[in-house]
Every structure is written in C-alpha cells, then in structure tokens.
C-alpha cells in the first residue's frame, strides 16, 4: 500500500466477497449431493404449497438432511416475508 491509499475509502476486498460467496454456494451444493434423490423435487413441491398461502421467494425454503447417529434429521427452514408488506 502506498501513502495515497490511506486516504481512499476503505472498501471490502474482492477476495473476501469471493470467499463468502463460495462458502455459501459450495455448502449448498454439497448438501444437495449428499441428500436423497427426491430432495430437490420435494423442495419444489413444498414451495408450491407454501405459495398457496404466502408469497415467498425461491430461496426462502432451505432443506437439509443431517445424520445424527442412526437417525436422519430433515431440517426445513422457511423464511416468511415481513408482515408489513
């Protein structure tokens, strides 16, 4: 860094942005490939059911299958829109 850089507005480094984006997408894709085959279709159908009652966006439904010992736990996370809208 040169002396003139100290007067510039600090901004987020692009490498950090890249890392954060990658961590999210890679985690999501790993979850998709480790889960059962029916998971993507089930996610789509759930989204349709929810949309009969509330308008939510495509990424509002997050689904995960976790293994805890012998148990498989299906975790469903739905982000509902704010009431004010």
């Amino acid at each position: 860094m040169g002396i003139f850089d100290y007067f510039r507005q600090p901004s987020q480094k692009s490498a950090n942005v890249a890392k954060e984006r990658l961590q999210i997408i890679v985690a999501r894709e790993r979850a998709a490939r480790s889960g059962p085959d029916y998971l993507p279709a089930m996610q789509q159908e759930l989204l349709q059911v929810i949309r009969k009652y509330v308008q939510v966006s495509d990424d509002a439904v997050l689904m995960n299958v976790d293994r805890e010992g012998d148990c498989e736990v299906l975790e469903l996370n739905i982000t509902l829109p704010d009431d004010k809208d």
Binding site: K13, S14, A15, N16, A18, K19, L22, Q23, V26
Partner: peptide, 12 residues
C-alpha cells in the same frame, strides 16, 4: 485482497 489466497481455497 484481490485474489483468493491459499488458505481461502484450502478452507473451502
């Protein structure tokens, strides 16, 4: 900070 570093890629 313009490029992912070795640790970043290794961690991901």
């Amino acid at each position: 900070g313009e490029m992912l570093n070795i640790e970043d890629v290794g961690e991901i």
